[in-house]
Design a binder for these strands. Structure first.
Lengths: 197, 197
DNA sequence: TGTACATCAGTGAACGCGCGTTCACTGATGTAC
DNA sequence: TGTACATCAGTGAACGCGCGTTCACTGATGTAC
């Protein structure tokens, strides 16, 4: 009987969820170990039984968010057979996700690991899967392009859209108005997938 | 005779330069009041005589960087009479500046003021001046467009290019390869300024 | 120009707080017979 | 099933460190006569 393992698994899960909730409530910057364990109703030390440290826990939260984003965008992509329209829908879908999950979404990009520690493989894979959705649409638009070029172009388009969305959502820097965001994203997506040599 | 004022002005300037140098050396995250005053060869408390606090000093550093960026991009713009080519040159020029001033450039976007404090007007103006350079080129490409629409589109293009450059420079997220950055920026700038209804 | 006094700038030791991480403890879970 | 013992999970008070900010002090600058 694995009662101890069950407890551990339950604790691990509760801590993850508590961390997510705390980030939603106070943002990554306002995340404190004590708040997480208070919310998860366990002792402070438990974090270090279930995770290496706070950074490790945050990485898991971010992975969780990336999975949710991937699920969201996959389902959006499925609805649009035309690759041009699909790109527009993906851009808007990304904006919608970012908007409705703002603090978690921001955490993905704001969290910085200590320099001596490197990003786990599964995190890179999460990102690669996202890019694949875009690359696939591009492949349909440019059937003769090389696979590597498509991936590279997908990165460009993703980061461009991300830039537009990030500046629009965090008022801080002069991004586009929020109510013009969808319109501008549509324009961007259309321009960027107009056929060319 | 304003000897006291001279000393104060000198100190203020030295602190600014020391802060810039420290950011270059250790990044915004590694910026510490003690390191700044050590480099400026004055006492710790002096920061609070010349600036409200560390955040205020950082805002001044960022303003300094934005001015340098504006100067750089203005001179780039002057060299290209054709607005399409100018947009390409601006994108590459921005990437070049970001690359050669990475820590200072990153500081502009990484620095977060406490929520209760708002961004001074001069900081917004610095940003607006940057956008104007882009809007001007757009105005030549789309002579019939409204001024407001041009500004909005300039914001979109700026944040898109910024996204591409930011992801490419900070390896962290899957941005385009650094040696393909210029090529991708050129493609982006051309696509985004292709004539359309 | 010289002297006496007032002001106030720069100084840096000390304060204070936040907060991640540790570790000696204790009691529930698992094991042996 | 019951009892005695060993293990080891979760606990949370305490540690330790980093670091922004303050403030009583002192000596140079400015002022009055």
């Amino acid at each position: 009987m694995g009662k101890r393992e069950d407890i551990r698994a339950d604790l691990t899960e509760r801590l993850l969820q508590a961390a997510i909730d705390e980030i939603c409530a106070n943002g990554l910057k306002g995340l404190r170990a004590r708040d997480i364990t208070a919310r998860a109703k366990c002792a402070l030390g438990t974090i270090y039984k279930c995770y290496t440290d706070l950074d490790d826990l945050i990485m898991h939260v971010n992975s969780h968010t990336l999975h949710a984003l991937h699920t969201h965008l996959s389902s959006v992509a499925k609805k649009w057979p035309n690759p041009h329209d699909r790109m527009v829908a993906l851009a808007k879908g990304y904006a919608g996700f970012a908007q409705s999950h703002q603090p978690q979404w921001a955490a993905i990009f704001d969290h910085e690991l200590p320099v001596d520690r490197d990003i786990p493989d599964w995190h890179h894979e999460d990102q690669a899967r996202l890019l694949k959705i875009i690359a696939e649409a591009l492949g349909e638009i440019y059937p003769n392009a090389q696979r590597d070029r498509l991936i590279e172009r997908a990165k460009t388009i993703f980061s461009a859209a991300h830039g537009v969305i990030a500046f629009a959502l965090q008022q801080r820097f002069s991004g586009v108005d929020q109510d013009q965001l969808d319109m501008e994203l549509e324009a961007l997506a259309r321009m960027v997938t107009a056929v060319q040599p």
